[in-house]
Write a protein that binds this DNA or RNA. Sequence first.
DNA 1: CCCAGGCGTCCACATGATGGACTGACAGCA
DNA 2: TGCTGTCAGTCCATCATGTGGACGCCTGGG
Lengths: 322, 322
Amino acid sequence: MAALASLIRFSDNVRVGNMSTIWMERRLDTLEKAMPEAAGTQSVDRALMLLSLIGRHGEAGMSLAAVVAGSGLNRPTARRLLLALMRSRLVEQEPETRRYFLGEEAYVLGVLASHRFGFLDCALESLASLSRTSGDTSFASVRRGDFAVCLHREEGAFPIRTHALLPGHRHPLGVGAGAMAMLAALSDAEIEPILAANAPLLEERYAGYPPETIRADVAFARQHGFSLNPGRVLANSWAIGMAVRYPDGRIAGALSIAAIDSRMGDARQGELAGHLGREVARVEARLARRFAAPPSGAARPAGGRGRGATPRDDISMGGIGS
Amino acid sequence: MAALASLIRFSDNVRVGNMSTIWMERRLDTLEKAMPEAAGTQSVDRALMLLSLIGRHGEAGMSLAAVVAGSGLNRPTARRLLLALMRSRLVEQEPETRRYFLGEEAYVLGVLASHRFGFLDCALESLASLSRTSGDTSFASVRRGDFAVCLHREEGAFPIRTHALLPGHRHPLGVGAGAMAMLAALSDAEIEPILAANAPLLEERYAGYPPETIRADVAFARQHGFSLNPGRVLANSWAIGMAVRYPDGRIAGALSIAAIDSRMGDARQGELAGHLGREVARVEARLARRFAAPPSGAARPAGGRGRGATPRDDISMGGIGS
DNA sequence: CCCAGGCGTCCACATGATGGACTGACAGCA
DNA sequence: TGCTGTCAGTCCATCATGTGGACGCCTGGG
């Protein structure tokens, strides 16, 4: 259970009670400088950690015991916070199995947020095309703090597939082709703290990823224009990946393709990289069309606090068209 | 400000401090019976109310003053809770304008939740088809408690359009064609408490919707197979709508089409209703394909608590394919 | 039939969350 | 240029909320 507890963090950036492993405290020191200070919201932080935890176990849901184990919270506390999430419809509990799942409100918020972020919306067609033309499995992932989270997996026609990476699964940045592509897209100054923060976890659970190997993989990705996972975690499962950027240059996520090693020789790597590069360009074009201005509103008028240029806050029921 | 405060509720079901209008208290009495009891999570409930509030103001975001006005919270409290939401990346603040928006984590959770709920994913193609063939504006909405929330709006080619209903906008069930379609899909026993709960708000802000008119519109929708908004809110803006169901019969949401009154004569209503019915059937077929079992897992083995049949909680990093 | 494991609740106590008061920044106006 | 109003954001004394050890119930497996 200690190992389980060490894995779990709310959006990878929140200090939660009862978690005291060395590597975690070290990385929180690193990150707290970049995050709003936590004071007077322990309960909220805990609830949102639970939400994220449940989000990453979408398909099978989670039992209360797993939530307790994964969060490090005491059972009455976890249950009470889950009740609050259930009242908000962000989480729901299946009566028969008692397991907890993301609720419909999470979906609705995601839809409302997609007007600012829709990376996967823009990527789905490309993933379908990649898997159709290659026959292999393709993935979309996003960065969450120092980790990569798989958002979508698209099956190809080839019958031998790895089923290890599923939506919600999360790995340290650098572990896996999509995660490596996003890491390699960062500057060295950004990469070093991430490696430092993840060092304990990598040493404990990712034996194939000593830091020097990750740095070499970063160099490879920068040199070749695509990242390569030569079966570092699962010997026969190889993958290549590329980062995708918003028009303003920020990393939106990554696309990757996985196949068994016999389908990932040098020649086929190049072929798949060509397909991948074209689809990445298409996703980036769709993102550009979707956000005429970047999601952070950088195109908005600058100048001081800029309050004069902001939309009026008109919390009222507009006339209705439907 | 009192009018503003009366509008805001977290997922329409949470009692929040400082809100004491008669209609709100009355409806909470009605609803608390159906909701997990709130004890020891006031802070969490408040934070999630803010999240929902910001979610419904996606495009323009919200200032702190608007959040304070809309939530009824004191400013330091609202700010502190917003900081917690920002730490979790569910909310982000735009530095130039200081406005708050849904963050990328909301999008990621929505993507992860879409494996259980993807109504809009299944509806987008149909909305595009409806607007392409009709030339008018089409909408997808979902039920949130006693309200309907617009998730998506698809523009048609006809140049005269109402821009009143936007994603995030929320109206009482029954107000607007999509909201009416969802209301009419409920049983009378389900409808009456909703009308009772919404009565103060309807009286205050929806003069065109006395309860007997809503009941007549429900009867019309049940008789004709589609709901009709004959310009009740905006005189020249008419709309028709239909509910969409998950395979297990629960209401997934509604599709609707809006047009100016001169384009909504009886003959064209029938024509549009035909298109709408076909696309609703297509959406329902896509939902059926997507969820071989209904989202609530009703197909799972029954029998007592059914814990023996549940997936193992294996919170571990699986082997990786990407 | 018994036992272990998981789920869920209670409530005395400790801790965390609140909001009135205050400060700073900025835009608009005289 | 100076003043005023508005908004954003913070501090900390006070009090209300949140916690978790203990307990009971239910179910499945041996």
